[in-house]
Write a protein that binds this DNA or RNA. Structure first.
Lengths: 194, 194
DNA sequence: CGCCCTTTTGAGGAAGCTCAATTACAGTGG
DNA sequence: CCACTGTAATTGAGCTTCCTCAAAAGGGCG
């Protein structure tokens, strides 16, 4: 048993329903410990998939067990990492539960922009993102058809452009307003434990 | 700073949007460590509210810090508890993102039944639940009006009855099927770490 | 009894879905 | 260089689900 630290590329986690409809529950960027929670939980109740080529570091659970046995400070940092994940889950619930289609997409893009910027992978207003429109639909609880229409609308309003593989934000202020995005939940400038 | 262990009653966590729309992101039953994640995170990015009277135990973060410094096994158990929470968040995303109104309510009720049963607070098919219809709406990303109609439909189909404060499940099999509910993500019979 | 909160019901409208067809585009082989 | 293929994006039309607004009906409690 092992857990995966993502070094390059993109990985998502998702739950499928019995009719094949897919719901993404997490999207990981370089620096994320994709399934660290698999160490205490022992088994995962969802699936993991790479979106394109990735480079990862693999941590054996034995190693993690030894480390957490010896280093309480390090344990708290690992714990903290999984809690950031949970905070993103919560905002994901809010996004899907309380925003309309345009807001969901705007919020999702704004979050990814903030996270990629935090690890130096996003320029001022544009970044690479290897998601197809259907992946975006599966993330936001929409259909690919509707996602397509909303993306067109956002493009026509000069707010953002989504080309498969590349996102450009033309008007970050309106994007954040439409998505009601406040990055506080990402704890980007917060201190880690210890 | 302190974290709260719920002993009796019900507590929810929620995020409000700027228009006052509310989205529940967690619902806690006795035995849950409501905001244990507040210890490593240091601050919470959402709100917490009791639904009716509660009895709680308060754990000072200093105490938790001392315990986690000395007892790696205990730390892993606490960590594990927060990861169960995250697993429920993930299923919550699925519920709101991929199920229709009837499915969301059925899934939500089925989860609560399973969790309350696990702590001995639910009989065979009925249990107390101090939620108003509007709380259920806020949990499921619906309006109170639509929740009311769906509840009537579920009642008329003899699947379940929701009276404010009391839920009765008449047909657990159909309830689970409608909600596509599989309790695996609750890790009810799983081993804790160590 | 009167008040407040919650539930219930009705009617009309908007958002997003389904089904279906068309277009764009990259890769592949001739 | 071009036809051929498969995947992804785009567009259209009609429909379902759920929302909004509004009002009525219960129900507990001072």
């Amino acid at each position: 048993m092992a857990s995966t630290l993502l070094l390059e590329g993109t990985i998502c986690r998702y739950i499928d329903d019995r009719n094949g409809a897919r719901q993404l529950v997490a999207l990981h960027v370089p620096g994320d410990f994709v399934d660290l929670h698999g160490y205490p939980l022992k088994r995962l109740e969802h699936d993991v998939m790479a979106l394109g080529p990735v480079r990862v570091a693999v941590w054996q659970h034995e190693t993690l067990h030894r480390l957490t046995g010896e280093r309480p400070d390090l344990t708290r940092m690992l714990w903290y990492a999984t809690l950031l994940d949970a905070a993103m889950h919560r905002m994901w619930i809010f996004r899907v539960g309380r925003l309309g289609a345009e807001g969901r997409i705007a919020h999702f893009v704004a979050e990814l922009h903030a996270r990629l910027q935090a690890v130096g992978l996003a320029g001022d207003g544009s970044f690479a993102l290897p998601l197809k429109q259907i992946d975006l639909a599966d993330a936001c609880g929409l259909t690919n058809v509707h996602v397509n229409r909303v993306l067109r609308s956002l493009r026509e309003q000069d707010i953002m452009t989504w080309r498969s593989g590349e996102v450009t934000i033309h008007d970050p202020v309106r994007l954040r307003r439409i998505g009601e995005f406040d990055p506080a939940y990402l704890y980007i400038d917060a201190d880690c434990p210890d």
